[in-house]
């Protein structure tokens, strides 16, 4: 019974991948709009990010009495990666709702709209990455070859985000208040995940599972770790790969079951 719904989802997704130029064209267009009347365009987001990193780094670095050379790159990479994950997820909620005009007038694979959201956020993420070398130079921290591992990490994170966004887009099209729920959820996750605090500054005896079970801890580590010169542990890789498999199975089932209903909900 559940297997029957898969082909529908797979057809939609493979068509969207085949027509990836649609997602990249419109995703790029979303970012390009920021450049039209402002010379530095999307770099305003980068500037915001830079200020936030500077402020949080200085405040919490001093509060936790961590050396700046270590803490600033940690907060910087963490906030940038978290920014990517959280904006993908919150934008993911409106992927279908926001594309209502297109969905109701043009026959296009629905997954295209999810890919567009991911592409837009990837471009913004690439803008923000500029901050990292700046931070590293300021605190004269070294950068190692391990950083290259951030690339497979990024791909694994993106593939995980795609299924989450597909699920969120589908659910939010039907239940509009889920978007608000998601905002609150992301806020809580932000404080629960080691982004502005480090695991080692926790008091002794704090249970490990607090972050070991937190999927977002592993997702962030996959990109942040290599950028800071640390190789993510096999547990982190396995966790992310397992989540990818289970998550996609669930997303395919849900999307396959409700894909045809989505235009009616809009």
């Amino acid at each position: 019974m559940t297997v029957m719904t898969f082909p529908d989802a797979v057809t939609d997704i493979s068509e969207a991948i085949k027509k990836h130029h649609l997602a990249t064209t419109f995703g790029w267009q979303d970012v390009a709009q920021r450049y039209r009347r402002s010379r530095i365009g999307a770099f305003w987001l980068t500037i915001n990010m830079g200020v936030m990193i500077g402020a949080l780094g200085l405040i919490f670095g001093n509060l936790f009495r961590t050396p700046m050379q270590e803490f600033l790159p940690f907060v910087g990479c963490g906030l940038i990666v978290w920014g990517f994950i959280s904006s993908c997820l919150s934008d993911g909620c409106t992927s279908f709702i926001g594309a209502e005009g297109i969905i109701l007038q043009v026959r296009m694979p629905l997954f295209t709209h999810v890919m567009r959201t991911l592409w837009r956020n990837t471009i913004v993420f690439a803008h923000n990455l500029v901050v990292i070398p700046v931070v590293l130079v300021i605190v004269t921290a070294p950068i190692s070859w391990v950083a290259i591992l951030a690339l497979p990490g990024f791909i694994l994170v993106s593939l995980n985000l795609l299924w989450m966004m597909l699920v969120l887009a589908t659910i939010c099209a039907r239940f509009r208040d889920m978007t608000q729920v998601m905002q609150n959820f992301l806020q809580v996750i932000f404080y629960l995940t080691p982004i502005i605090w480090q695991t080692k500054t926790l008091p002794v005896g704090m249970p490990q599972y607090l972050f070991d079970l937190n999927p977002f801890y592993h997702l962030i580590t996959l990109i942040r770790g290599p950028l800071l010169g640390q190789i993510p542990s096999p547990v982190t890789w396995l966790y992310a790969i397992a989540m990818l498999a289970v998550g996609w199975l669930f997303a395919l089932w849900l999307f396959g079951r409700y894909r045809k209903r989505i235009p009616y909900w809009l």
């Binding site: 649609l22 064209t25 419109f26 267009q29 390009a32 709009q33 039209r36 009347r37 026959r107 296009m108």
Partner: peptide, 17 residues
């Protein structure tokens, strides 16, 4: 509306498939 005519031809064409 903010994009040039050329860009809009591209966008519109993509929308048409």
């Amino acid at each position: 509306p903010e994009a040039t005519g050329r860009e809009n031809i591209k966008l519109r064409a993509a929308m048409m498939g």
